[in-house]
């Protein structure tokens, strides 16, 4: 039993890694006032690029750089669409997600070399997990204690007043979306590194879960991290309990599969009203 417990805890850490990184990306984006449904697309684009470049070059560094680059580019496209073209943030995000899902599916089937021969072509997963925890702390500190963090909070809460105080909200949002891209890039690369090859839609909605965790965490780094761990824990529980009868009842795996989503839904119903979203979220 203790062994099982350890195993669940270990896989909690493993499974929540991509969520934490993506949620931090969402944190930067949403704190600056840009709703970011596109976390999913960035992760997927990054995962695809990581595997592709990793397989082509065999260099984990280049693979990582490629993943980060891809996600940053997607983040900047989201910035251009929402800030320059004034496209609704949710529509832009959904559009990007659909396009990226389509494009990566297209490539996955066409390019047969989209599979790394050895895991070494991508940085090991432990590198990313460490990053996830370190970066969560760093993000919390950055937002609470630096000029950049203060500007981020200010434009996210009130772009007009921030402009009055001499800030440039559009510029700050571009930067934030680039940072969000980097973080989602890490998340995508981690997902790629865990599996070693690319499968269409391999992010499997984890970008959305990360967003839910961010909201449950009240748009704060450490609570969001904890929410991600919670989701990871449920997922780990699901993997362990699958096919194991509990008190003599054989529960279907789908029940466990839907647990984290149901948990998110219930948490949203219970806590949403208590967490204040950045007041300027979605505003031009």
């Amino acid at each position: 039993m203790t062994n099982d417990m350890m195993q669940v805890l270990m896989s909690t850490v493993v499974l929540s890694g991509p969520l934490i990184l993506a949620a931090l990306g969402g944190l930067f984006s949403e704190r600056s006032g840009v709703i970011n449904i596109a976390l999913e697309g960035k992760m997927l684009g990054a995962a695809c690029t990581a595997v592709f470049i990793g397989a082509q070059t065999g260099s984990p560094l280049l693979s990582l750089i490629g993943a980060l680059g891809a996600a940053v580019i997607i983040g900047l496209i989201h910035a251009v669409l929402t800030q320059v073209y004034n496209v609704d943030h949710i529509i832009s995000g959904m559009g990007l997600n659909a396009s990226i899902l389509g494009a990566t599916t297209l490539f996955a089937k066409t390019l047969p070399q989209l599979q790394t021969d050895e895991a070494a072509a991508i940085f090991p997963s432990s590198f990313f997990w460490t990053m996830a925890f370190v970066l969560a702390g760093a993000a919390a500190l950055y937002i609470a204690r630096t000029r950049g963090g203060l500007h981020l909070l200010a434009v996210g809460n009130d772009p007009d007043k921030s402009r009055q105080m001499g800030l440039n909200p559009v510029k700050i949002r571009f930067k934030s979306l680039a940072v969000a891209g980097l973080l989602c890039g890490l998340s995508g690369a981690l997902i790629a590194s865990t599996s070693g090859n690319f499968v269409p839609n391999m992010t499997d909605g984890r970008g959305y879960i990360a967003l839910a965790a961010l909201i449950l965490g009240g748009w704060r780094a450490i609570p969001a991290l904890l929410a991600c761990l919670l989701f990871g824990f449920f997922h780990a529980l699901e993997l362990m309990l699958q096919g194991q009868p509990i008190l003599g009842v054989d529960l279907p795996p789908e029940l466990w599969q839907s647990l984290p989503y149901a948990a998110a839904l219930i948490a949203l119903a219970l806590f949403a009203g208590h967490n204040k979203a950045p007041a300027g979220l979605g505003r031009p």
Binding site: R145, R147, L150, H151, N157, D158
Partner: peptide
């Protein structure tokens, strides 16, 4: 100081005071 104050209610008084005129990149509280 405009008629509708440029104070952002969600930030602390100190953050509002400094906003746009922070002494250094790292804020020594």
């Amino acid at each position: 100081v405009s008629q509708h104050y440029a104070i952002i209610p969600e930030l602390t008084c100190l953050q509002n005071l400094m906003l746009g005129a922070e002494p250094e990149a790292w804020i020594k509280q």
